[in-house]
Design a protein around this nucleic acid. Sequence first.
DNA 1: GCTTGTTTTATTGTATACATTGAGCCATCA
DNA 2: TGATGGCTCAATGTATACAATAAAACAAGC
Lengths: 237, 237
Amino acid sequence: MSDAQAVKRSASKAEGDERHEAIYRAVSDAIVEQRLKPGARLREDALADVFGISRTGIRKILQRLALEQLVTLTPRRGASVTRPTADEAKDVFDARQLIECGLMPDVARRMGDKEAAELRDMAKRERQALRNGEQSVAIRLSADFHVRIAQLSGNATLAAFVESLCSRSSLILAVYGHPGHLGCESHDHDDLVGYLETGNGERASAFMSRHLKAIEASLSMVEEEENVPDLQQIFGG
Amino acid sequence: MSDAQAVKRSASKAEGDERHEAIYRAVSDAIVEQRLKPGARLREDALADVFGISRTGIRKILQRLALEQLVTLTPRRGASVTRPTADEAKDVFDARQLIECGLMPDVARRMGDKEAAELRDMAKRERQALRNGEQSVAIRLSADFHVRIAQLSGNATLAAFVESLCSRSSLILAVYGHPGHLGCESHDHDDLVGYLETGNGERASAFMSRHLKAIEASLSMVEEEENVPDLQQIFGG
DNA sequence: GCTTGTTTTATTGTATACATTGAGCCATCA
DNA sequence: TGATGGCTCAATGTATACAATAAAACAAGC
């Protein structure tokens, strides 16, 4: 059953707010999982038809996604999946460095057996997805892993921000990453859980820093050239 | 001329987007400057009348403010200025500690004479406002000072997040701060500029940490008790 | 044949009407 | 007199109709 059908089916009973939340999540997931690729247009009518609500609700959802930088709203042009610039990509990864690494001590302090097991399970499922070639699932699980760790810090505000950063990272990987080469490969996530489990916040922080640097370094930061740059150069020269 | 009148007057010529932006800023400013106090209800009809647009545009603005946690949207109850909880307050100040302090090295590196002069001017105007008893102006300038510094880091994503945190801090001060005792008193801001000007990121970071801790310590973190807690206790016991 | 101007169409922006629901009020009854 | 029930009203949730506008298709001229 498709996402849209699942949402529609639950519509009859669910409250309006929950329906909106489900639709929001369906679109957000599709973007994070790269089934909706950067630059893809999101027409209001089409989305309204697919999810069985009117454009009013769709616009509300698109605005929310726009504030999270997942979609770009161009006046009179409508919504499209955001195509991050190289500058934005750098900002996002710098922010993740600062915050995710800075949270490691807190996370290590609050880490218990249950939390460690949960994280290990997520890492395991991520590896399995990678082996099975389920790229979308792997991307999502990787983002979820980072978000879950941030949540374990106990700071809801920072966790929500990390969630936003991870979603945007998925877009960045879609644009600048090499196809087939996923960000969080190897056993990095398992190793990280190990450091956190032993309460070694400093080592976890250093490891997270290397981990994020490795992801960023794997990107090929080539901005696509303008379509018609000749005219621009004429004006410039 | 009042904010609403100013917005209305510019409405005839301005594009719709700019009008919305102006209204958003008018409401946001009123909240940050504590002219709209936490808990104040924001009825859609009233706002629509005041600003001369329909409820549709007002709802869009309220949703944006809600995502920034400045207003709280209660289903079927409408919008009201957010009253931060003690937990939220702690999260916000912890987040500011991590981010604003972490940005100091970058800021110190990019600090030039022009930037330092701009910051000194803001600090000066803030002190003047405090002396003149213009509390709203002082609150705004204090928040602007912190935001401007974050912008100087060059990371737009983190700067936007700091802006959100500063706005929420204003709400927190409104609820938990002592009346008349403003957060950023004394010459802290001037001193901070001094450290940044000399490129001493580490000292600036340490100073910012103390500065934020001092603000947080000045709060009286007493959650107001529930109105009718007896029933709750009966169920609990 | 390519560029430019015009018409058409498709899509978003805005407002308003209607439905829904929570809150306040009043009357009735214990 | 106080509480509970229903009733009225006010405010929000939702959808739809209309207006504005940008893209696209098309036609005309160079």
